[in-house]
């Protein structure tokens, strides 16, 4: 299974545990890394911009720029509309917009979340829009131009670990949470769970989701939309399993809300600890990369040819928890992973 390969390109940023890695959608060789001092327990954060240089094997990595922040950074997303801009989510609940051409300071900052912002995602359909999800239970929708959030969705009553726009439908967003569910929201539909005689949602309103998927008994830490098959979602979490959900039964735009469903198409078992990140390949509909607290990143084929294993590759080079992975958008089969060992690895599957 693990045929000998060229060793990964490595970049170490000592003192900062990496929390998230993203390839630029505009430049073939650029990578952004969000990281936090002290493993994200307390202290500063840092945003790193890295370039991949061509070379033997996976090439070499060069740190171009870094930006320091007051609080740990937990996620980063590249702008889909501006090649040099990125947004980060931070432990103090703030979001910051950075411009890679400038030094030191963010060009914009927002602070509405009351708890840690754990994910940010830029819509690649409505390219002026991005979303953030926070431990305060809300997902907020933003545009760079507005000083305040455009919309707030009270998605769960507990931590929302990730919120992701659908790559196929505008205004459709999926979330995952401590409560073990995935939810799909249609931002155009009525906003709130109806308040009946027995339920009061006025004082503690919960946004109405188009579909709720009871994915796990414990926390779901990460989700991703399949890039080729609409309404196919992968999820990973504390239960160590990676699950692929067929959610085509969701009814959008209608008045029917609060549906519960989701058809678990595939389960990928193998990680020994919680799965922290799942990421579909942008090039192949059936390929999925995962990062886990068992200190490995793995690549899976969700629909393997008969007789072959689902597991395609185990990347075992990290020496601490692996928490982020991202596929190159331009170079098929090139994966970047990052972890709490302060190392960024880029390698070819």
């Amino acid at each position: 299974m693990n045929v000998p390969r060229a060793p990964p390109a490595v970049l170490q940023n000592p003192g900062f545990a990496h929390y998230s890695v993203k390839w630029s959608p505009f430049h073939t060789t650029r990578i952004a890394l969000a990281s936090s001092a002290n493993f994200g327990l307390v202290g500063n954060g840092r945003l790193h911009l890295v370039t991949v240089n061509a070379g033997p094997g996976a090439g070499t990595l060069r740190l171009d720029k870094q930006y320091d922040t007051q609080d740990g950074l937990y996620d980063v997303a590249w702008s889909e509309i501006h090649e040099n801009q990125l947004v980060t989510g931070s432990g103090d609940g703030s979001l910051k917009l950075w411009d890679a051409m400038l030094n030191d300071l963010p060009i914009r900052a927002w602070h509405e979340h009351t708890r840690e912002v754990f994910s940010v995602d830029w819509s690649n359909i409505k390219k002026d829009t991005f979303a953030s999800s926070s431990w305060d239970g809300t997902v907020k929708i933003w545009t760079p131009e507005h000083p305040r959030s455009v919309a707030t969705i009270t998605a769960h009553h507990s931590c929302v670990y990730q919120a992701l726009f659908s790559p196929h439908q505008p205004d459709v967003l999926a979330t995952c949470s401590t409560d073990g569910t995935l939810r799909i929201f249609d931002l155009r539909a009525p906003a709130y769970v109806a308040s009946g005689p027995t339920t009061n949602n006025f004082t503690n309103p919960l946004s109405a989701s188009a579909l709720t998927i009871p994915a796990s008994n414990t926390e779901v830490l990460s989700i991703d939309w399949n890039k080729y098959r609409p309404f196919l979602l992968a999820s990973g979490g504390v239960d160590k399993a990676v699950k692929v959900w067929d959610c085509r039964m969701v009814k959008l735009g209608g008045n029917e809300t609060g549906a519960v469903g989701g058809n678990c198409e595939t389960q990928l078992l193998g990680h020994e600890y919680a799965v922290r990140k799942v990421q579909w390949s942008p090039h192949r509909a059936e390929v999925l990369a995962t990062a886990s607290y068992d200190m490995t990143a793995r690549v899976w084929n969700t629909m393997p040819p008969a007789g072959q294993s689902q597991l395609m590759y185990i990347h075992d080079a990290h020496t601490e928890f692996v928490v982020g992975c991202s596929w190159s958008l331009y170079d098929e089969g090139v994966l970047a992973t990052c972890g709490w060992d302060s190392r960024l690895n880029v390698f070819r599957i």
């Binding site: 708890r115 840690e116 431990w135 504390v238 928890f321």
Partner: peptide, 26 residues
């Protein structure tokens, strides 16, 4: 901040003990 995500499971129950942890820190 993600320790209990790792731990999870039986010990920690439905609530996220990490929240408590971070509160402590504050």
């Amino acid at each position: 901040m993600a320790l209990p995500m790792l731990v999870g499971g039986s010990d920690c129950g439905p609530s996220n003990p990490l929240q408590g942890l971070s509160k402590r820190f504050d």
